[in-house]
């Protein structure tokens, strides 16, 4: 296994580079890839003479529109990939995803409420929808955790079922609010639930970046704990892991990562599920290598998906990720002889 870690890392780096260049070059007004790359590099100090022929509008398209959107896609994808890997380790189940904790349901409830009730405000350049979705995700996943405590412990099955119950409850409330809403607002909510990176910029990058970067680094510190948790709570205990404390920390981190991601983009399915799966197939279950690669690959998958979404006439990215992710996931499931990951 270990020998090809390097190959996988180099491969992913190459794909990341290609994704970057392609994303910056493609869009409603396409540019040659080399030119887009030169415009990008010319924004770095000391390289400002690199793209003298680029017009001001071309520079603006690449640096002010496509670059923040690309970075946002990479960060959101990275956050979802890492959050998914954490949830799968946490639940000792390769089928787990951040949505189990009610993150998506909570975010949807927050966003729906704000849109339908017509609450429009801005916080640090972020719309009320982002703020409400983030808040909703955190409140709901917190509630799921608190309701799953039992005698100082948080049994994973209880957490799972509580997540399902609270998720349904949130969906019901969201549906009711939607049902009372006006036609135009309904469209907004539906579009939000399909996920999109269109018209997002630096403020959204600024919001997601701290969570995606700092959160992922802290998660990485707990790699060995996550490995032990894959053997089950009791065995992790016997290996000296303070299981309950570690689980709480990981749960908070996974919720923050997923909540920040979903808040700015809306619901994006399958990235948190498929990316850790795929990487695990390539490098095995050791989180010390799995987590960094999920960060990288999650970003790449979302970057590429957003490019497809953009090229296909701004269709919601959630449609792309599920459309590509679900069949791929089915393929992964069927290609294994036994139920093992």
């Amino acid at each position: 296994m270990r020998q090809h870690y390097g190959v996988v890392i180099i491969g992913l780096m190459a794909v990341l580079l290609a994704t970057t260049v392609l994303s910056l070059a493609t869009g409603p007004s396409p540019l040659p890839a080399a030119k887009a790359l030169r415009i990008l590099l010319s924004s770095l100090p000391g390289l400002d003479g690199l793209a003298p022929e680029a017009s001001a509008s071309q520079r603006a398209i690449v640096l002010d529109i496509r670059l923040p959107r690309l970075i946002l896609a990479l960060l959101v994808g990275a956050a979802l990939g890492v959050a998914g890997a954490v949830m799968q380790g946490f639940f000792q189940n390769p089928m787990a995803a951040p949505s189990i904790l009610g993150v998506s349901a909570g975010a949807t409830l927050g966003a729906t409420a704000v849109i339908i009730l017509g609450l429009n405000f801005w916080v640090w350049g972020l719309s009320s929808v982002v703020v409400a979705a983030f808040g909703g995700a955190l409140v709901v996943s917190g509630a799921v955790y608190i309701l799953s405590r039992r005698g100082g412990r948080t049994p994973v099955t209880l957490l799972l079922l509580t997540g399902i119950a609270i998720g349904s409850l949130c969906s019901a409330v969201s549906s009711f609010i939607l049902f009372r809403g006006q036609q135009g607002d309904l469209d907004l909510v539906i579009f939000w639930m399909m996920g999109s990176l269109a018209n997002r910029g630096w403020p959204e990058v600024g919001m997601v970046a701290p969570y995606a970067l700092v959160g992922s680094v802290i998660v990485y510190v707990y790699s060995r704990d996550l490995n032990a948790l894959l053997l089950g709570d009791e065995q992790a205990y016997h290996l000296g892991i303070p299981v309950e404390r570690v689980k709480l920390i990981l749960l908070v981190l996974a919720s923050l990562l997923a909540a920040a991601a979903v808040a700015v983009t809306g619901i994006i399915g399958f990235v948190g599920l498929v990316v850790p799966h795929l990487i695990r197939l390539m490098v095995g279950p050791d989180h010390r290598i799995l987590l960094p690669l999920c960060f990288l690959a999650g970003g790449i998958v979302l970057g590429l998906s957003d490019m497809v979404a953009n090229l296909a006439g701004e269709i919601p990215i959630g449609i792309i990720t599920s459309l590509l992710g679900a069949p791929f996931f089915l393929y992964l499931l069927h290609r294994r002889r036994e139920y093992e990951f």
Binding site: L231, G232, Y339
Partner: peptide
């Protein structure tokens, strides 16, 4: 927890994992 794990090791009835660690 750690200090206990440095003194007591436990072998459960059913061990392993569905995750393919070497």
């Amino acid at each position: 927890r750690r200090q206990i794990a440095q003194r007591i090791a436990v072998v459960p009835q059913l061990s392993g994992s569905i995750f393919p660690f070497t």
